[in-house]
């Protein structure tokens, strides 16, 4: 990357004036949001606020009708497809844990590793020591070492969530988009996940969507509340949760 500042912005992710509508329904409405390098941001908001659609836009699954979406200050994400965006270094964990159920935990991680993803590269692939060490390390981090040869489909819901986070780690992207990581987890697991995300945040930029306010509080990061496709409030958890409108549309009294 060019060190000279030819960038439009120094933000890692930069969304400005983004609109998307599906058959007249405005899913995203003049959404503007920036994520600084190294930042972790929590996104909250009621169902239908556009959280997942926003992630769809960033990862190229949905094309915005208008607006700017920049990655690393220079790259226009609206012109790229999912594969290219993933190659650039934006990883995503889905709301519903999506792992490759018929393959082993270890193979799931192997598939996620950010090595040669070409047809040729995978056909003539032979594992390297470095690769298996990385996988071992991730397995340890997500506490699935003992389950490495189990099929991913046989894991518990919480374990699948972790495996998906592990896949993000193996992918080692610059930005992690994490959609509802603690849904269906026990309190202990939730706590561990918060710790894990904080750990990952040391050298990755993260955007987390979550409904669990205890979890968001535990993360202790800047919070953005979305409502009807645009930003309703932004600030620390205390600021946002005392905001009148946020209480009204989301948290409830």
């Amino acid at each position: 990357m060019n060190v000279m500042d030819t960038r439009a912005t120094s933000a890692m992710l930069y969304l400005d004036g983004v609109h998307v509508s599906f058959d007249g329904f405005h899913a995203i409405n003049n959404l503007s949001l920036t994520l600084a390098p190294g930042e972790m941001r929590a996104i909250i908001g009621p169902n239908g606020a556009g959280k997942t659609t926003m992630m769809d836009i960033i990862t190229g699954k949905t094309k915005p009708d208008e607006g700017t979406v920049l990655f690393d200050g220079t790259v226009d994400l609206t012109r790229l497809d999912e594969t290219r965006i993933a190659e650039l270094g934006i990883g995503r964990k889905f709301q519903k844990p999506t792992v490759f159920e018929s393959q082993t935990v270890q193979d799931n991680l192997l598939l996620a590793l950010n090595v040669d993803h070409s047809v040729r590269g995978t056909l003539f692939w032979r594992g390297s020591k470095a690769e298996s060490e990385r996988i071992d390390k991730v397995l340890e981090t997500i506490r699935l070492t003992d389950a490495r040869n189990r099929l991913a489909g046989s894991l518990s819901h919480g374990q699948k969530q972790w495996l998906e986070i592990g896949m993000l780690l193996a992918q080692d992207p610059k930005v992690l988009l994490v959609d509802e990581p603690v849904a269906g987890m026990t309190d202990v697991e939730t706590h561990l996940t918060a710790e894990l995300l904080k750990e990952i945040n040391r050298n990755h930029t993260i955007m987390v969507v979550e409904h669990d306010m205890t979890f968001v509080r535990e993360l202790g990061v800047k919070v953005t509340c979305l409502h009807e496709g645009s930003v309703l409030a932004e600030g620390s958890i205390d600021q946002v949760s005392s905001n009148e409108r946020v209480v009204e549309v989301y948290l409830g009294r």
Binding site: F22, D23, F25, A27, T52, T53, D56
Partner: peptide
Amino acid sequence: RPRGLFALKGR
């Protein structure tokens, strides 16, 4: 138009 002339859109 992989989903035909009149396709449903959205999630």
